[in-house]
Design a protein around this nucleic acid. Sequence first.
DNA 1: CTAGCCGTCAGGAAAACCCTGACATTTGCG
DNA 2: CGCAAATGTCAGGGTTTTCCTGACGGCTAG
Lengths: 223, 223
Amino acid sequence: MTTTLLTKPRVVRILLIDDHPIVLAGVKALVMTDPNVEVVGEAFDGRSGLRLAAEFAPDIVVLDISLPDLNGVKVAERLRAECPNCKILALTVHEDRGYLRQLLEVGISGYLLKRSATTELSRAIAAVAAGGLYLDPAVAGMAVEVSAPRLPESTTGRAELSQREVEVLKLAASGHSNKSAAAILGIGVKSAETYKARAMEKLGFRTRVELVRFAVSEGWLKN
Amino acid sequence: MTTTLLTKPRVVRILLIDDHPIVLAGVKALVMTDPNVEVVGEAFDGRSGLRLAAEFAPDIVVLDISLPDLNGVKVAERLRAECPNCKILALTVHEDRGYLRQLLEVGISGYLLKRSATTELSRAIAAVAAGGLYLDPAVAGMAVEVSAPRLPESTTGRAELSQREVEVLKLAASGHSNKSAAAILGIGVKSAETYKARAMEKLGFRTRVELVRFAVSEGWLKN
DNA sequence: CTAGCCGTCAGGAAAACCCTGACATTTGCG
DNA sequence: CGCAAATGTCAGGGTTTTCCTGACGGCTAG
């Protein structure tokens, strides 16, 4: 079927989710400069966002990954489930491989960094609205290494961490040695080593630096 | 210049510094809704910001603390020196005692969190333009504890860390090994070990956990 | 019932870390 | 000026920790 001659100037309806009102208002002001875009809702946390998404069924959800109540990945996941027609455009400061991978697995349609030029925003929205996949130039390179190499065996599930793995990881990121973490959890050092290794492998991390970055972005180190 | 009877129609001239163009554009859109405010410059990094400040001598510099090239505190410091008439309004996501303390010592006029309501922004600008000090409600409580207790341990002049010690400590807290830190600093592993040991000893830390806690409270693990 | 994840752990090699010096500069102070 | 203290730089050697490779029983789902 051929495309219509006059592409109907159908307005793209957008829901914004960002925990920083000042940033959200700014993004809103930006996207509204495009007459084809309409902001149908704004939320400052994950739960409100999910509620508004269910209510308004927007075309695109512009989602900040760092949220106070729910992890951005969790929100994306639930959005996919509860509002399958919503496209998700992640808008974030995080340039971590881990986030990108998780979000791609969840099925987002775009990943844009806040440090990108403002023109990228409208470009990304246009691309996503058209049904495409948009990745920020700065992370596009990661996508290839991310999509190909991982997990011949995790066909069913995604990179969910088990309870023990999360516990050890938090302690490790807080500066505890495997031995110390093991003592705290009341298990053997070797077990702690195993959990940490498995978790790191699941997350695709190979160095403690990456782990600490992840921990910071997860809010694990807020004391 | 004659004084007018009505409140001064003088426009507040503002310079914006934020490394995320999308956020910066948003803030710009927000402040421009106030007719008394004029944005005279925008910069995405510290150096450009300092240059523009010298060029335009704005009334207020709205400064994001997380910058790629220079630390926000450094930028504030140099702004105070090079452009003494500029008021500085820190706009940031960081709620750390450490940052706030450092910035207050440098002599900023305002501290606003991005998670605050948009109305706070104009309020803060107005307050700062009027020569006042504005602190975000969320950090105002910290200010009192911050202004009084000036390093109880430094009574004899001891808790001062040398440059190298701080550098290695930051890297260590971020998850770098001594070896990795040494490589980054371009020194031998043994030197890095020495700095770290001396610094830990000065601070009275025995474990990495204490170090990480300290780093978090100092805001070293953000950005 | 077979496969995979989970919690638990070992052995041995490799890497990182801590402790003890060491030495040359720089800097404050009597 | 000269000396002691602080700083930047590094090595040797013993101790810990981490890393890599398995392993084994319990549970759950296909």
